[in-house]
C-alpha cells in the first residue's frame, strides 16, 4: 500500500490526507508550488478537512519564515559587463577562483603525512621485528596494530562522511585520499620513539623471519 492509499483517503477529492501531508511537507502551504496535476484536489480537500487545514497552517509558518530570507543582490555592473563581454571575447572570462584548488601547502601536508606514516611503520617493524601474524598478536604488534587502526579509523571517518554525502547526492562519491587533516604542531602519537619507556615495544614474543 502506498501513502496515497492511506485509510483516511478522501475519494471525493481524489486525494488522500496522507498525500496531502506529503505535498504540504514538501512544497509548503502555497498551492502555487504544488504539482499542477494535484493542486486542485489539494484545494478541494483543504476546503473540507480540518486536518488538511492544520497541515497547511503548519507549512505556512515555515513558508513565512523562509520569506524572511531576504532579497538576493542584483547583478553588479561589473558582472553584467563581464558576462556580456563573453560574446565578443570568450577568453575574456575572468578566471574564477575555485575552492577546489589544491594548494601546494596542502599537497605538502598530505605528502608529509604519508611519509610520516610509512617511516613510522618502518621504524615499528625495525624495532619489533617483522611479524607475520598467525594467532594472537603480542604486545608490540598490538600497539602497532592499534596505531594503524587509529590511522585507518581517521580514514574510515572521512570515508563515511563522503559516503553519507554520496548518499545525500544519490551518487557514490570517491574518497579523497588527501582529505586527512594534519596538524604539524600536534604530537605524533605514531612516533614510537616518543612513547613512554613502559610502553616501548618489546621484541620478545614477536615472531620474526
Amino acid at each position: 500500500m502506498t501513502k496515497r492509499d492511506l485509510p483516511n483517503s478522501s475519494p471525493a477529492s481524489g486525494m488522500s490526507l496522507g498525500r496531502f501531508a506529503e505535498l504540504a511537507q514538501a512544497y509548503g502551504g502555497d498551492f502555487e508550488r504544488w504539482p499542477e496535476a494535484e493542486r486542485y484536489s489539494g484545494i478541494s480537500l483543504a476546503g473540507r478537512s480540518e486536518e488538511a487545514r492544520t497541515l497547511l497552517a503548519e507549512a505556512h509558518g515555515l513558508d513565512y519564515l523562509l520569506s524572511r530570507f531576504g532579497a538576493p543582490p542584483a547583478p553588479s555592473d561589473a558582472l553584467v559587463e563581464r558576462v556580456t563581454a563573453l560574446e565578443r571575447d570568450p577568453a575574456s572570462a575572468v578566471e574564477v577562483s575555485s575552492p577546489a584548488g589544491r594548494t601546494p601547502f596542502r599537497a605538502m601536508r598530505s605528502n608529509a603525512l604519508t611519509v610520516s606514516v610509512v617511516l613510522n611503520l618502518f621504524l615499528a617493524a625495525a624495532l619489533g621485528g617483522v611479524w607475520i601474524g598467525s594467532g594472537t598478536a603480542p604486545g608490540t604488534a598490538s600497539e602497532v596494530a592499534y596505531g594503524l587502526a587509529d590511522v585507518q579509523a581517521t580514514l574510515s571517518d572521512q570515508d563515511e562522511a563522503e559516503a553519507a554525502l554520496g548518499e545525500e547526492l544519490g551518487t557514490p562519491v570517491p574518497m579523497d585520499p588527501d582529505f586527512v587533516e594534519f596538524d604539524s604542531d600536534a604530537p605524533d602519537d605514531f612516533d614510537i620513539a616518543s612513547w613512554p619507556d613502559a610502553e616501548q615495544p618489546s621484541i620478545g614474543g614477536i615472531s620474526s623471519i
Binding site: 538576493p72 558582472l79 563573453l86
Partner: peptide
C-alpha cells in the same frame, strides 16, 4: 543573469562566489 545570481547566492551564501558561478554558467 538575475535569477542565476540569486540561485547561486542562496545556495552559497556569498555574493562574490555567486558572481563567479553566474559568470561560469554563461
Amino acid at each position: 543573469l538575475p535569477s542565476v545570481l540569486a540561485c547561486g547566492w542562496r545556495i552559497l551564501g556569498d555574493r562574490a562566489e555567486a558572481e563567479d558561478v553566474a559568470q561560469e554558467t554563461f
